[in-house]
């Protein structure tokens, strides 16, 4: 009897701990949604900021984020996909394979601000790109590369060995086998990984702080060597660097809501897609 009560107490405290997390996150999301929605208007989304962000819209920041994310994904996806194919289909064991895996683990753990330092040292200064879309995209691309490689490799590993054997036994070359009877079934999973990468790239602030982001730039970029505003950096600036942060609070909430909407949208899409494909393909 006593132990039964004890057990109930334990289960309930574990449950309470879990739902406390849910509560906090739920409160965070609700707070931002409720206080952010009044700010959202056509002018806010499509207008240029005025008076260093106190009025007007966030259009250049949205566009800047889109450019940065596009740039990052264009570079990271092919590279990540090819890496995953090599690791999963070509590299067996061996030293190179071990070093590559160590490198991926290391990359995955590098703090985002250190990526910023690296981007500053290599792209901005050494290559002379200056603070630019190009430098920022490259930095973000390298940051999300491990995410894309790891999830792409998982997708490749999920394709049963039997399909590869069947194809090879019919006299297909290695590449024909990969291209015709492995990749088609792994691609959905690979795209899912990339979408997660997009979500991460869109929300990161620290790397672009040092490589591209403009404090206040109420115009659109003309080339990849231009600076841009970006949503996460804009939020940071409004919240901490603005002379009158209290007054621009609605703008902060509005920006946070748009940013969360973009990131959560990509993440949810990835989660739903992944569950869909997991259910659909059963071997």
């Amino acid at each position: 009897m006593r132990s039964e009560l004890q057990g109930k107490i334990i289960v309930w405290s574990i449950r309470a701990t879990t739902y406390l997390i849910v509560g906090i996150v739920g409160y965070l999301l609700l707070d931002i949604i409720v206080k952010g929605i009044p700010t959202i208007s056509w002018e806010f989304l499509s207008g240029f900021p005025r008076r260093s962000g106190a009025e007007g819209g966030i259009y250049p920041a949205i566009i800047g984020t889109v450019y940065l994310v596009l740039g990052a994904i264009i570079m990271a996806f092919p590279l990540g996909m090819a890496s995953a194919i090599y690791l999963s289909e070509y590299a067996m064991q061996g030293r190179l394979n071990r070093y590559i895996r160590l490198a991926i683990i290391t990359l995955a753990g590098v703090p985002s601000i250190v990526f910023g330092l690296f981007g500053l040292g290599l792209f901005v200064l050494f290559f002379g790109f200056g603070a630019s879309i190009l430098a920022g995209s490259l930095t973000l691309a390298f940051m999300i590369l491990p995410t894309i490689i790891v999830s792409s490799e998982e997708a490749l590993q999920a394709v049963p060995m039997g399909l590869r054997e069947a194809s090879l036994a019919l006299g297909a070359t290695k590449w024909q086998t990969v291209y015709k009877s492995v990749l088609p079934y792994a691609l959905p999973g690979m795209f899912t990984g990339s979408i997660l990468g997009i979500g991460r790239a869109a929300g990161e602030t620290a790397p672009i702080l040092l490589t591209v982001a403009a404090f206040f730039l109420p115009r659109l970029p003309k080339s990849i060597f231009d600076q841009v505003m970006a949503l996460p950096y804009h939020l940071y600036v409004l919240a901490t660097q603005h002379p009158d942060t209290e007054k621009v609070l609605p703008m902060q909430y509005g920006t946070a809501l748009v940013l969360i909407f973009i990131v959560v949208f990509f993440n949810l899409t990835a989660i739903i897609l992944r569950n869909h494909f997991r259910k659909k393909i059963q071997w």
Binding site: L163, E165, A166, A169, L170, G171, Y185
Partner: peptide, 19 residues
Amino acid sequence: VVQLRRDIGMVFQKSNPFP
């Protein structure tokens, strides 16, 4: 090897048709 596997076909224990 590729030519060899054309000359020598194989049927596996577990049937493995492509989807």
